[in-house]
Amino acid sequence: MITLVRTNDIVLISLIEALLREARVPLFVADAHVSAVEGSIGAFPRRVMVPEDHAAQARRLLRDAGLGAELAPSPGGS
């Protein structure tokens, strides 16, 4: 799995989850528990992750939705 977005913004995470689920892109939100436990200091952002074989589709969906600035750098550097 690769990290698509890293953020503390739970509204943004909800939007991304909705977009990806609508397109049937599998996803996993990592670090949700530690982020909730640490409170609101923002030290541990949550990571929205997708399987590597769905990464290009997921990145395209988020760019098309105007969320390109939120994307983590891709492993290949593009």
Rank of each mutant, 00 (worst) to 15 (best):
M1W: 10
M1E: 13
M1I: 12
I2M: 10
I2V: 15
T3Y: 11
L4E: 07
L4H: 00
L4M: 10
L4F: 10
L4R: 01
V5W: 05
V5D: 04
R6H: 04
R6D: 04
R6F: 01
T7H: 08
T7G: 12
T7L: 01
N8H: 14
N8I: 14
N8G: 14
N8V: 15
N8T: 15
D9V: 03
V11F: 12
V11K: 04
L12Y: 03
I13M: 05
S14M: 07
S14G: 15
L15R: 13
L15Q: 11
I16Q: 00
I16C: 01
E17R: 06
E17N: 13
A18C: 00
A18Y: 03
L19R: 11
L20H: 09
A23N: 11
A23H: 09
R24W: 03
V25C: 07
V25Y: 03
V25M: 06
V25L: 12
V25I: 15
V25R: 00
P26L: 11
P26K: 03
L27F: 13
L27H: 06
F28P: 01
F28H: 15
F28S: 06
V29W: 04
V29S: 08
V29D: 09
V29R: 02
A30N: 04
A30E: 14
A32L: 05
A32N: 05
H33G: 10
S35V: 01
S35C: 04
S35L: 02
A36V: 10
A36Q: 12
E38I: 15
G39H: 05
S40Q: 14
I41Q: 12
I41Y: 11
A43L: 14
A43K: 07
F44N: 12
F44G: 05
P45R: 03
R46K: 08
R46S: 02
R47V: 02
R47G: 02
R47H: 14
R47Y: 10
V48E: 05
V48T: 03
V50E: 06
V50I: 06
P51A: 12
P51D: 11
E52H: 08
E52C: 08
E52S: 10
D53Y: 15
D53C: 06
H54K: 01
H54Y: 15
A55Y: 12
A55H: 03
A55M: 09
A56N: 08
A56E: 15
Q57A: 11
Q57C: 05
A58T: 02
R59H: 01
R60Q: 13
R60C: 01
L61A: 04
L61V: 04
L61H: 09
L61T: 03
L61G: 01
R63S: 00
D64Q: 09
A65L: 01
A65F: 00
G66R: 00
G66Q: 00
G66K: 01
L67Q: 03
L67F: 04
L67S: 04
G68K: 00
G68V: 04
A69Y: 06
A69N: 03
E70K: 08
E70D: 14
E70I: 02
L71D: 02
L71N: 03
L71T: 10
L71S: 05
L71P: 09
A72S: 08
A72T: 12
A72D: 14
P73H: 05
P73N: 08
S74L: 06
S74W: 12
S74T: 10
S74H: 03
P75V: 11
G76K: 02
G76R: 07
G77N: 07
S78C: 13
